[in-house]
Amino acid sequence: MTKKTGGPLDSARTRAWLRTAALYLDRDKDRLTRLDLAIGDGDHGVNMHRGFLAVTAALDEWEQDDLTAGELLIAVGDTLVSTIGGASGPLFGSSFRAMGKTLSAPGPDDDSRRFAAALSAARASVHRLGAAEPGDKTMYDVYEGAVDAFTRVADTGGSLEAAARAAADAADAGVRATELMQARRGRASYLGLRSVGHQDPGAASLALIFHALAHALEAK
């Protein structure tokens, strides 16, 4: 596989990723609200939007502070924890913190394998905090497929861009799969069988973040 030479996930590309994610979450706020109204209380879209608005508001300041990509992602995680609220705050926040910590520590030289390790750490942090298993109808169902897909491409010498695109496609499949599941975690679990037939809103948000990564990396 030939590598595109987009370079590593540096601060500039990380900022582009976060700005794109904020745009996607803003664009799809109403769709996320509708998903959450069906099996939750309908505030997921608003909460995610509030969190990423706070992130984009702080991006310029962080740019002046000359943060590395790792430091930037840790700051993003802290901001999300203190602005989203609910379960999504700690879960999305700890995801970004785990990515940032992994990128800040010594790791593989290869850009895509290095970021694969960061994504694995994010998945592990959500697994640990949320105690969700595959099939529970949560964002973890997106993490499973997306991180595996990213890692497969990275391990076979694929570029960051190719790995991110594979992860975004797998994320979509993960969101679709949640539709048929009965929720066993989070507020939707109280609906029992009535949770079947609806996509999980947290999974849908996470898929948007993977799409934002692919889009931002592909942008010239």
């Binding site: 505030d43 909460n47 203190s82 602005t83 609220g85 705050g89 700690p90």
Partner: peptide, 11 residues
């Protein structure tokens, strides 16, 4: 208190 129907944040 947090936002409506949303847990307050750790800080």
């Amino acid at each position: 208190p947090g936002e409506v129907f949303t847990s307050p944040t750790p800080d």
